[in-house]
Amino acid sequence: MAGLKIAVFASGQGTNFQALVDSVKEGRLDGSIELLVCDKPQAAVVERAERAGIAAWLFKPKEYASREAYETEILAELERRGIELIVLAGYMRILTPVLVEPYYGRMINIHPSLLPAFPGVNGIGQALEYGVKMTGVTVHYVDGGLDSGPIIAQRAVEVADDDAEETLAPRIHAAEQALLPWVVQQIAHGRVQLDGRKVKLSPLQ
């Protein structure tokens, strides 16, 4: 499925957004990032979108009566642009069925832990506090729960005895920036098959 139309949802610095932009530019991702959706108009990711010439749909949640209200507007914009895949890349809001249901199986998220361990906020800090020797990153489908959807791919990152968040985080982010574009490329080529809770990766044709 070359030419996959992608929307990226992000709330912060946008390093994973940038990894996707660079992958498209360098020919490693057969798709186009059609839209950035961001709930923080002052976030650094908005500047990244501007530099890349990518349209941004910006909003302030407090200006809406409910999550469903702004998601209804987002859904209309996604449908207008023919978006085929939503990538949550540091989007810090729980989604409602307004978006999850029409895009189930076409919406993925990246999380900085080896799920199902350490879901929710600060997965890196949770892993350090627990004392694990191995953590990593996970790309999974979004099902409306808290980082609970079917797992597509994971990459492990070793935790050193003297690691702190400021030393572990760069290695986690590097793993994210490598894994996320790779997964999107597999989806673009129709290799990712969702079967219940299990995800299968078919061989290259």
Rank of each mutant, 00 (worst) to 15 (best):
L29P: 10
P119F: 01
E73P: 13
V46N: 04
R93A: 11
L114C: 04
R51T: 01
H140L: 06
E63T: 09
D30L: 08
C38Y: 01
P61I: 07
A19I: 08
H140E: 01
A76K: 14
I124W: 13
R81T: 11
A52N: 00
E73M: 06
N122Q: 10
T138V: 11
V121C: 02
A55K: 14
A127H: 05
A43D: 00
V132G: 06
G31R: 00
A127T: 10
M107T: 09
K60D: 12
Y64T: 02
G123P: 15
G105Y: 01
Q42I: 00
L99D: 06
G125E: 08
G120S: 12
S32D: 07
E26C: 01
A117Y: 07
G125I: 03
Y103G: 06
A43R: 04
D30K: 10
L146Y: 08
E47G: 14
G131Q: 08
P112D: 02
P41V: 00
V142Q: 00
L36E: 02
V87H: 02
M92Q: 09
R80S: 14
M134H: 13
I83K: 11
D147H: 14
G27W: 10
A19N: 06
P97H: 01
G144L: 07
E63Y: 09
L36N: 00
I54K: 08
E71P: 13
A76R: 14
G27F: 03
R93G: 08
E50C: 07
L20I: 10
Q126C: 08
Y64M: 07
L20E: 02
E84F: 13
L115P: 13
E47L: 07
I94K: 08
H111V: 02
E68M: 05
R106S: 10
P119N: 04
E84M: 05
I124A: 09
M107E: 05
Y141H: 12
Q126M: 00
G144S: 07
A127D: 06
S113P: 15
A69P: 15
I33Q: 03
M92T: 11
R67A: 06
S148E: 12
N122A: 13
L115C: 09
D30F: 04
I86S: 06
E77K: 15
I124K: 14
R48D: 04
V21R: 13
V121H: 12
D30W: 03
A117N: 11
R67C: 02
V98P: 15
H111E: 00
T96D: 10
G145R: 07
G125A: 01
P102K: 04
Y91S: 06
A56S: 15
S32C: 08
V45R: 02
P61C: 08
R51A: 12
